[in-house]
């Protein structure tokens, strides 16, 4: 085991700001949805917009960061060990088996994470951003290009945005639970807060991979 600096400061800033913004967007968004009254409708709408714009700025920086650092490659999907990872969550975890894949600086995400985060990044977030922009601008003169699209009805836009919100909440529930499945309950949480994580040595990892190949 050795201590590795795995999450860089921007990455942690991005993660936690995004986490806060999504939480805040859910809180204000469902007030606009009419589910409850908390900030007051007008405030909820205004706060939701400000949070949305903040998230957009953050996303722009994050995209820039991912491409300049090459971190985007972390999300390339792979089927390698995908089955093993699923088996681990379904069976292995209860038998105290070791994680089937090892975290390294070059490969922080397990195959399930890769697919989940990729779907989040290229499907759920874009759908939320685009439907959100349509929602704000769909027929107002301030909307420029979007009002030019001449969207007849807000209903499909609003319903897609609502459905996306439910999907994001479900993701957060599972995500928050799965961070407790590290070496210890708080290993992953601590890593995302401090940037440092205790991970197994390369040798151990290589040994493990070799082992798996032999088993196959």
């Amino acid at each position: 085991m050795k201590t590795v600096y795995i999450y860089r400061s921007f990455e942690r800033f991005w993660h936690w700001t995004q986490a806060f913004l999504i939480f805040f967007l859910v809180l204000t968004g469902f007030e606009v949805h009419g589910s409850y009254s908390f900030f007051g409708f007008e405030n909820a709408v205004i706060f939701h917009r400000y949070a949305a714009y903040s998230l957009l700025v953050l996303i722009v920086f994050a995209i820039f960061w991912h491409f300049t650092t090459g971190e985007w490659k972390q999300y390339l999907p792979t089927t390698k060990f995908l089955k093993a990872q699923m088996d681990y969550y379904i069976l292995g975890i209860f038998r105290n088996s070791p994680h089937p894949t090892k975290k390294t600086v070059l490969s922080k995400l397990n195959p399930l994470q890769r697919i989940t985060y990729l779907v989040l990044k290229i499907l759920v977030i874009p759908v939320m951003v685009i439907s959100g922009l349509f929602y704000i601008f769909y027929r107002y003169s301030s909307g420029g290009f979007i009002s030019g699209l001449d969207i007849e009805n807000l209903e499909p836009v609003a319903l897609i945005h609502t459905a996306g919100a439910y999907a994001l909440i479900a993701f957060v529930v599972v995500h928050v639970y799965l961070i407790t499945t590290g070496h210890s309950l708080l290993t992953n949480l601590k890593a995302m807060m401090t940037g440092y994580e205790d991970i197994e040595d390369e040798d151990e990892t290589n040994y493990k991979i070799k082992n798996d190949k032999e088993i196959k």
């Binding site: 709408v45 807000l154 209903e155 319903l159 609502t162 919100a165």
Partner: peptide
Amino acid sequence: FYLPGRDYSSLIDLFGFLLI
């Protein structure tokens, strides 16, 4: 028309609730 705060799809709300 769809009026935010007043309108919703009970189907999507039910589905979303069940998903969570």
